[in-house]
Amino acid sequence: MKELATIRFIGIRMSRDFITMILLLGVPIILITVFSIILGEVEGLSGTPIRDETVVLLVLGFQLFGGAITMNYVHQDLFAERKNRLLSLPMNTTLYGFSIMLAGIIYSILLGIILITYTTMVFDVNWGNFIWALLVITLMSSLSSIVCLVFTFSVKNFKIAERLSEVYGVGMILLAGLFFPMPDNALINMFNDYVNPLMLAYSSIDQVRSGGLSDGWLYAALLSVLILIAFGLLLLTGRRRMP
């Protein structure tokens, strides 16, 4: 499985990609810090400090953008400048694509862990069960990478794929009502309850945090269903586009 062995090098490349690091780690740290200071210890209607709600949503929200690194590397290596060289190598390019995806997911999870640790230690944010939070972060990171790859394979112009990935991230945050409250519309509410990965992930963590383990499982299961659907689309689109 020499394709999987390339994960090491993909990891090294990602760790030296400072712009991505600033965007996926530096920016959230700054935003979380600013938000945490502004929000202070104010309690929300549910009794949970608003800071805990906002910070958890922010960390999960940034996971929506984690797939950007996966799609960029897949594009660079298999569709752009390095395509011919990598195709000339004695390896299975589909497996190599999966290696990139795996590396991207691990990278995003690691950034998530750093953010969870930072928010817990510095602002005493209550994440409930750490292992559970990690599981949810893993699901979010996997979903983001898969969705971004579906975009990469679905459209010919990579710039449009990038815009779609931004629409995915910003759109979910917008629908979750993080920028401003969404109108009380049945369709939007249903979307947020059953489809919006950000809300599913948040609800899962929130339920486990407040003792509702079974509901926590339910939301995680819904998130997993989304992953399965996205993975199905990935196989369909990938088979058509993979070089």
Binding site: I19, I22, L23, G26, V27, I30, L31, V34, F35, I38, F179
Partner: peptide, 21 residues
Amino acid sequence: ESSFLIFMAVIVLMALLGGIL
């Protein structure tokens, strides 16, 4: 690309700290 991406974060911060959000 780098300029645009980092500026996006700066915009959010400016909006947050400048009292727009």
